[in-house]
Design a protein around this nucleic acid. Structure first.
Lengths: 218, 218
DNA sequence: GTCTATAATGAGATAGAC
DNA sequence: GTCTATCTCATTATAGAC
C-alpha cells in the first residue's frame, strides 16, 4: 500500500502483513460504500476486518488516506477494462455510438453483479464518490481520464456535433448506470414486481442510454 | 413543526419562534445537502443558523427527527407541483411520453435553478436521500407516491408495454435529472467548456430522457 | 423562548508492550 | 506485525438559569 511513496521500506512486507492489509481495505470498501465516509469509523473498520484498532492506522494511515487508497485501488483496473473493451471493439471494425456506451457501461455493471461482494461494494463506492461534491477531485483523478477517452471517441464518431453533447451523453449514461447499480430495487418497487432479472435490467439500461445518445448526437 | 404530533400545544408559537425554527431548518437543509447526515453536526447547524446549540434540539428535536423534517418539509410542495403540471397538461389535450417526463423533471430542475438558495440546497438533498440506501424508506414516503402516479401515466399511454419498462424509464430519468442538478460541472469539465447555459443543459437532459423513454416504451 | 453548563459517549490518533 | 492503553477532542442530548 503506497501510502507514503517516498519512504523506502527496509524489507518486503510479509505475506501475513499483506493479507491483513487486504482484509482492512476490503472491510473499508464495504463500510465506506454502505455508510459513506463520515458514517464509517476506524473502529467499525477494525471490527469488520476482525483486527485490532491500532492496525487500521498502522496499515491504512489516517482515515482520509485510507479512503483515497480504497477508492483508488480498483480504479485503475476498472478504467483498464473499459479502455480495453473499447480497443477490442475498434479492432473488430467500425464503431457505433452503441458500441462506445456498451464498452463504458458493461465492465462496471458486470463486475457489480458477477465480480463478487467486493466489486459489488466498490460499485456502490463509485456511486458515492461520484455523487458527493466533496470528492470531486478524487473522482476526477480516478475516473475522468477514462471518461475523457470515451467522450473523445463519441466526438470522433460525430465530428459535427458539439463536445458538450458528447459530455452530457456520458454523464447521463453514468448516472443511469449508477442508479441501476444502487437503486434497481426502486425500479422493482415502482414496477410492482418481485425482482427483475439482471439481463433485463442491463438491456433496459443500454436501450435507454443508446437511444438518448443517438438523439443528442445524430 | 409537527415533531410530536400527538402533543397538543398550549398556545400558538410566537412569530419570533417560528422565524427561529425556519432559520434552523434552512440551515439544516443547506448543511445536510452539502455534507450529508453524518457530516453535519447539530453544532454546525446552530452556527449556520446563528442560534445557540440548545435551540436546535429545542426546535428540531433530535438529529434524526430534524433530518426527516427537513427532507419532508418541501416534499409535499414538490410532489404537488409535479402532479399539478401533469393535470394541467392533461387538461390541454392528449399527453405524450415527452409531456409526462417534462412534467416530472421541470419542477425540480427549475426550482433548483431559479427557486433561490434554499431550493437549490433542497434539490441536492433530494439527490443525497435518493442515492443512499439508508434513507430508502424516507425516500419512498416522500417521493414515491408522486413517482407512482407518473409511472401509472406512462403505463396508461403505452398499455401494451410492461410496467417494468415504465418504472425503469422513470428511475433513469430521475438519475439523469439529479446528475444534472449535482454534477453539471462535470459535463462542463468533460466538454472542456467554461460553463454551459441552463437552458442548454435542460434541453440536453430532456432530449436524452425522452429519446430513451420512447425507445423503451414505443 | 433563549442561552449556559455539563454529562455521557464515541471519535481519531499514537506511544509503547509483546 | 500485532495488540493494549490512553490522550485529546468533538459529538448529542439535556437540565436548569434567565
Amino acid at each position: 500500500m503506497p501510502l507514503k511513496p517516498n519512504e523506502t521500506r527496509l524489507r518486503a512486507p510479509s505475506a501475513r502483513s499483506l493479507e491483513t492489509r487486504t482484509r482492512i481495505v476490503d472491510a473499508a470498501e464495504r463500510l465506506f460504500a454502505a455508510r459513506g465516509y463520515d458514517g464509517t469509523s476506524m473502529r467499525d473498520i477494525a471490527t469488520e476486518a476482525d483486527v485490532h484498532v491500532g492496525l487500521v492506522s498502522h496499515h491504512g494511515g489516517n482515515k482520509i488516506a485510507l479512503f483515497h487508497y480504497t477508492v483508488g485501488r480498483r480504479a485503475g483496473e476498472l478504467s483498464q477494462r473499459r479502455v480495453d473493451a473499447l480497443e477490442q471493439m475498434k479492432a473488430k471494425g467500425d464503431l457505433t455510438v452503441a458500441d462506445v456506451l456498451r464498452c463504458f457501461v458493461d465492465p462496471l455493471l458486470t463486475l457489480s453483479q458477477e465480480g463478487g461482494p467486493q466489486w459489488r461494494a466498490y460499485a456502490r463506492l463509485v456511486a458515492y464518490v461520484s455523487a458527493d461534491d466533496r470528492w470531486r477531485t478524487l473522482a476526477e483523478v480516478c475516473f475522468d481520464p477514462a471518461a475523457q477517452k470515451f467522450v473523445d471517441e463519441l466526438v470522433a464518431l460525430k465530428p459535427d456535433r458539439s463536445r458538450a453533447l458528447a459530455a452530457a451523453t456520458l454523464v447521463y449514461t453514468v448516472s443511469a448506470l449508477l442508479a441501476q447499480i444502487t437503486s434497481s430495487w426502486r425500479i422493482d418497487a415502482l414496477a410492482g414486481e418481485r425482482s427483475i432479472r439482471f439481463q433485463q435490467h442491463r438491456k433496459m439500461l443500454l436501450d435507454f442510454c443508446v437511444a438518448g445518445a443517438e438523439r443528442l448526437l445524430d
